[in-house]
Design a protein around this nucleic acid. Structure first.
Lengths: 243, 243
DNA sequence: CGACCTGTTGAACCAACTCAATTTAGGTGG
DNA sequence: CCACCTAAATTGAGTTGGTTCAACAGGTCG
């Protein structure tokens, strides 16, 4: 398999990411040790595993999820192009959640053993990594607030608004909306709702004219109203570093 | 006010923290710019604020919470001695949650502007900081799984087990249990339950002989059963770095 | 002592769940 | 192109876990 050169990283074309400096390109080239293709349904990182690899998503979508002892599953969040995976195993030794592809994916591979070099030699890259971790922490906190305080309608609105936001930041938006890579089943698992109730809630939002979601395409006739219901501001997210 | 010298840091006595190397002591001494006392109920960091300060908790307990637009409040997690506060504002610019003291606290103060120096000059300290962020991320994920999947009984068991675990790692445990610095009200806000139902659930656990909780003291007659109900392993947590 | 805060208990209600049946949409092979 | 199969989504009906409202008990403190 041929490996994409970091100088030509396809993610760099998306304006949601900060551009690499020439120095960063040189470093990332050395840091990157490979590339992989993942098929839908495959597990990229498994809960409990001590992975030696870290990944950056080049293309495709996934879920991060936690499996409880008795089989119940919670989707912790959704994974998009540009996301960095495996920091937990990289730093803590063991993954506490799994990452499963929902669409075909392409990922960059890094070696866990080189993570320390990054901290030692490239403080700016280390800072960026911590930046990503801090942003992640913020999202997880928001998720906790959503699961703890909001009702089904608000939860669904929130999740779809967040996904919409991220997809449009990636430039995946067209006049008839975005391609939604997740199923209601995954949405339900992410929101702590049953599939049935998720379906009912979605149709309710549809009936209110707040969304059109058919055959994997999502559109929002009136984003402002949906975002308001979701308790989210409509601002564009700031650019984020890429690792 | 007199300032504790890092060489005599009271947290170092607790065996849950990795001991400082002499070099680390030297660095922390320079990094630390002050100390503060906080009274119960005071807000140490406020949601939306661009704090110039970072803190490490020396003593006392707090909650991190998110306030929704309409006033609903979600406790994201509980804060214990040794916790590092303000990374979000430090890195992302703005706090997305508040930190409120529930008991009197004593905290170390650092300057946000020096955070970058830490990455540039002390990669090992930067690594530790990221380690803390990764652990935090793991806990938040577990919280999401709890709120999304577990019922009231399991949630309460989980929260009390986690608090118990942390307090005993801090060495705060005596033959008649631990001093619990939080009220049922805060527990309810952390678990997404009403106060009333939290109370009922606690009494149910009491009736099962799984816990004794009166006047701010918590004891667990049979920790193994409670931990099993909480879906948690009983292992001791590994030592963590201190910043 | 009164005021306040924390926690407990009862009763009525409702949001979300479960179980089960049905429809819709893709995908595959003849 | 149709027949068939499977996965995803929808709908109905009955149940339940948790909520709300309200009253009350126990401790603590000025």
């Amino acid at each position: 398999m041929q490996m994409t050169d970091c100088a030509a990283c396809p993610l760099q074309k998306r304006r949601m990411f900060l551009p690499f400096t020439p120095e960063e390109i040189a470093f990332m080239r050395a840091f990157k040790t490979g590339e992989a293709v993942v098929r839908p349904g495959e597990t990229l990182l498994a809960q409990g595993e001590r992975s030696e690899r870290l990944y950056t998503v080049l293309e495709g979508f996934a879920t991060r999820s936690i499996q409880l002892e008795d089989g119940r599953r919670q989707v912790v969040n959704f994974v998009f192009p540009g996301d960095f995976l495996g920091l937990q195993a990289g730093i803590m030794g063991e993954m506490r959640h799994s990452v499963q592809a929902t669409t075909p994916m392409r990922v960059c591979i890094f070696q866990r053993s080189r993570l320390w070099d990054l901290f030692r030699d490239k403080p700016d890259r280390a800072y960026d990594l911590t930046w990503l971790a801090a942003v992640e922490e913020h999202f997880l906190g928001e998720t906790i607030a959503t699961l703890g305080q909001r009702d089904a309608t608000e939860r669904v609105a929130w999740a779809l608004a967040r996904i919409w936001q991220r997809l449009s930041a990636l430039g995946e938006i067209t006049p008839d909306g975005v391609a939604l890579p997740f199923r209601q089943h995954e949405l339900a698992d992410a929101l702590g709702l049953s599939k049935v109730h998720t379906s009912r809630t979605v149709s309710q939002l549809r009936a209110l004219g707040l969304l059109v979601w058919r055959r994997g395409r999502l559109n929002m006739p009136d984003p402002a109203r949906l975002f308001a219901l979701a308790g989210l501001p409509m601002e564009r997210e700031e650019q984020r570093p890429l690792i």
